[in-house]
Amino acid sequence: MTEALLKVQDLVKYFPIHRGVFQHTVGHVKAVDGISFTVNRGETLGVVGESGCGKSTMGRSVLRLIEPTRGRVEFEGKDVLALNKQGMRIMRREMQIVFQDPYASLNPRFTIGQTLLEPMKIHHLHNPRERLQHVYRLLDRVGLAAEYARRFPHEFSGGQRQRVGIARALAVDPKLVILDEPVAALDVSVQSQVLNLLEDLQNELNLTFVFIAHDLSVVRHISDRVLVLYLGRMAEIADSEELFTHPLHPYTKALLSAIPVPDPDAKRERIILQGDLPSPANPPSGCPFHTRCPVAVDKCRQEVPVWREVQSGHHVACHLV
């Protein structure tokens, strides 16, 4: 039985561009422009796209680390964007985030133990003795030795720091964790350790993940369903297997074909896209992808394609599908 844990509807985030002496607004960077999706309890939704597609902004908007311009975010039926300060504080125990850069995500002046105590202090969880036990439980759970609690972040490697970042997110027992490129900064051998850890944690703790990444093989590996973004808009969403075997959107197809395959004999039918990503401050009219799309027709330049379900659970925004 699938049950929606997180529902995002028509999420929009425009960043104003200020110019001149009086800082008047001359335009907007349309970082996220109408994104809707549902995440079911216990599943992993992968979110992929290239730089400037709005995947990070989207993740942070859901958590209200960035205040979205408009839209609706529902967590277990509660309207997150309507919560007041106190309500939001409580909500933060349900939704947590793990960041990309393991060097910037830990306070250099806190020991690992202090970093892990912080969430419990903020939420006044447990008595002091239980807190300590919880810190050790967390360290153990992410595969770190207990004595690391008294060490500083700079004494650790990237992979170990990322484990601490994961432990910090788990300290408040959240139901949903947004993973914002959690393995992008890690070497492949360490990346696989962290991916396995995330899978184990998800099974043990029945966690729900939103996994934001630019690496498609990693996303395929960890996700149940995958959402493809382009310039702040949704291009395609489908079950992971379905998306990787039968991509429908020309952008998804190009993206998949562009991945270098570690097999010298692999047959490649590479679609090489022409040109650069347009700027999200000045997105093309009609379908945002039409400037680089190998099969674009006139209609694509004028009309924004509708988001429609082509097969059960497989949605796509393209005139030609």
């Binding site: 051998s189 696989s192 991916l195 093989s217 590996h221 960890i222």
Partner: peptide, 19 residues
Amino acid sequence: CIPKIAGERTRLVPIEGNV
């Protein structure tokens, strides 16, 4: 230890430890 883009999805076999 690199995730594959095609074929069956299996658990990754990491190289334990650090450089």
